[in-house]
Design a protein around this nucleic acid. Structure first.
Length: 278
DNA sequence: AAAATTCGCAACCGCAGAGGG
DNA sequence: GCCCTCTGCGGTTGCGAATTT
């Protein structure tokens, strides 16, 4: 089997992402979700491979990413889980709301590992430290992965220190079934939104599905307005996008990424989009 | 103050699994 | 069952910042 190269060697950018690229990626994913990472950069106007876009979104741009130093509790969790799971970073990160596997992995290698160098982990002792095993044995089973996902959701809904969450399907899931490029809807499509009911500490949690009425209404209205909805995403409809969607997706300030060292609110983001030469 | 070294993190790479045709 | 595509994961690398010499 010949594996399709993940990057076309001609003309695709590599290396550090620019604020401009971040803006484009965030605009597109927020609007359409990640219906197909490989195709996404083309539509989003990015000279990146899909894999790179996915990584950037997952590790940096996604809402609810927690950045900054680790708390004692988080470090203890990492150590404890690494002890039992070994280098299964995604599983470990799933237990740390807001932390990514990459971040956890980096923190382990740069800080925690040397702190605990002298004592081998239980996982290593009983063979669970699969980093040193046959790559085929490294991954968890489907069942384990499913459990991990469930745990992840549990944490979003229950254990998060700031859990006023509505899990609201992004618009991507509404993409036409007729397109065979749209088959791979992933859990990443979920846009985690938070009620800006700042006056209340009692943040009731609701999970909306793809049939979310508000989203449907939005889309119907939008599709009626733009006949090029699916083929010319993002270019023609910025006003619609934020005037309606920003009211539905009111990110908490600390859930939005930093841009040029400053928090980028949806409204600022919209302003910046207006200035883009797309 | 400049050079060398270390550190932390973002990003890349290659592989495996899942799923569709 | 095979082929192919896509996603997700873990290991690794490279670069810029911070620290030391």
């Amino acid at each position: 089997m010949v594996r399709t190269p993940c990057c076309d060697k001609t003309g695709l950018r590599k290396g550090t992402w620019t604020p401009e690229e971040d803006r484009k990626l965030m605009a597109y994913v927020t609007r359409y979700g990640c219906w197909n990472w490989r195709q996404l950069p083309k539509f989003a106007g990015l000279a990146r491979c899909g894999k790179s876009c996915r990584l950037r979104w997952m590790n940096y741009l996604r809402p609810n990413i927690k950045r900054g130093s680790y708390s004692k509790e988080e470090e203890e969790t990492i150590i404890r889980l690494h002890d039992s799971l070994g280098n299964r970073w995604s599983a470990i990160a799933a237990q740390l709301p807001g932390r990514t596997d990459n971040e956890v992995k980096n923190h382990w290698h740069t800080t925690l590992k040397r702190r605990f160098k002298h004592k081998p982990s239980a996982a290593a002792k009983d063979g669970k430290d699969n980093s040193s095993q046959d790559p085929k044995l490294r991954r968890g089973t489907s069942r384990e992965k499913e459990e991990t996902k469930l745990n992840d959701v549990d944490h979003l809904l229950i254990s998060s220190p700031n859990p006023p969450l509505i899990l609201e399907s992004s618009l991507s899931s509404q993409q036409p079934a007729s397109s065979d490029q749209n088959s791979s809807i992933t859990t990443d499509n979920t846009v985690v939104t938070s009620k800006l009911d700042s006056g209340s500490d009692d943040n009731s949690t609701t999970t909306n599905t793809n049939t979310d009425i508000h989203t449907d209404t939005l889309l119907e209205a939008y599709e009626a307005e733009s006949s090029n909805f699916w083929t010319e995403p993002f270019f023609s409809d910025i006003n619609y996008m934020w005037s309606d969607v920003s009211s539905v997706v009111p990110y908490e300030a600390d859930q939005f990424p930093l841009l040029d060292g400053e928090i980028l609110y949806p409204f600022d983001f919209y302003d910046q989009l207006q200035g883009l030469d797309l």
